[in-house]
C-alpha cells in the first residue's frame, strides 16, 4: 500500500463510489453509517451481529418463499369456476398468452432471482460464519450484489393489490393462505436488505490475502 502524504491510511480509506473522493472512514459504532463528505453517498454501515441476524432472516425468507409458492395467493370465483393465482401461474400465463419475453421477465424477477438470492446469501453467510472460504464465494457474492435490483417481489405484492382491487369491481376476490406468507416474506426481505452488510463478507476475504 502506498502512503503518499501520511494522512490517509489506505487500508481503512474508501473512495466514494459516486464521486471518487478518497476519505478515511471513522470508527463506526452500532447503528452508525458513514457518508461521503462531498456528495453524501452512504459509504459504510455497521451493525453488531449483522452476520447472524442476516443469516436468520435469509433462512426465514427461504421458508416463507417456499410456502408462498405452495398455495394460491389470491383466488377468483365466477360462474362456478375458480381461478388461482400465484407467482408461478402468473409467469405461466404470460408464456401461455404467447408473450415469452414477458414470461421470462416475470420468471427471473419474481422467481429465479429472489430464490437464487436467498439460497446464495445463506450459502455465503454460512461459509463466512464457519470461516470456510471457498473460491466461489467472491464471484457468487458479486453476482448476488449486481442482480439485487432485479429481484422484484415487493413490486409484485403492490401489483397484486392493484389487480385485486381492479377485479373486486367485477367479481369476488378471495385471499389465499399463501398471501400471508408472501406479506411476511416481503417484510423479511426488507429487513434482510437493511441488516446485510457486504463488509461482513469482503473483510474476511481481504484478510485472507497476503
Amino acid at each position: 500500500m502506498r502512503d503518499d502524504n501520511g494522512v490517509l491510511d489506505y487500508r481503512s480509506a474508501r473512495a466514494c463510489h459516486e464521486c471518487d473522493l478518497l476519505q478515511q472512514i471513522p470508527e463506526l459504532k452500532h447503528g452508525d453509517a458513514a457518508h461521503c463528505i462531498r456528495c453524501g453517498a452512504t459509504l459504510k454501515r455497521f451493525h453488531k451481529n449483522s452476520l447472524d441476524t442476516s443469516l436468520a432472516f435469509a433462512i426465514t425468507g427461504l421458508i416463507l418463499f417456499l410456502v408462498a409458492n405452495l398455495f394460491p395467493l389470491v383466488s377468483l370465483e365466477a360462474l362456478g369456476v375458480s381461478q388461482h393465482g400465484n407467482l408461478i401461474s402468473a409467469t405461466w400465463a404470460l408464456f401461455d398468452a404467447r408473450m415469452p419475453f414477458l414470461g421470462v421477465l416475470m420468471l427471473f424477477t419474481t422467481i429465479l432471482f429472489p430464490l437464487f438470492s436467498l439460497l446464495g446469501t445463506i450459502y455465503v453467510l454460512t461459509s463466512i460464519r464457519m470461516s470456510h472460504l471457498p473460491p466461489i464465494i467472491a464471484p457468487l457474492f458479486r453476482f448476488l450484489r449486481s442482480t439485487e435490483a432485479w429481484g422484484m417481489l415487493e413490486i409484485f405484492l403492490l401489483a397484486l393489490i392493484v389487480a385485486s382491487v381492479k377485479l373486486m369491481d367485477i367479481t369476488d376476490v378471495h385471499i389465499g393462505i399463501s398471501l400471508y406468507a408472501f406479506v411476511l416474506l416481503i417484510v423479511t426481505l426488507t429487513i434482510l436488505s437493511l441488516t446485510l452488510n457486504p463488509d461482513d463478507v469482503w473483510d474476511p476475504l481481504k484478510k485472507k490475502e497476503p
Partner: peptide, 30 residues
Amino acid sequence: TQLYRITEFIGRWSMIDIFVIGILVALVQF
C-alpha cells in the same frame, strides 16, 4: 449526484403495470 441516486433507486417500480397484467392474465381466464 442525489438526483442520480433517486433516479437509479426508483426506476424498477415502473415494472408494476407489467406485473398487474401478468396477474390479470393468470386470474381472468373464464
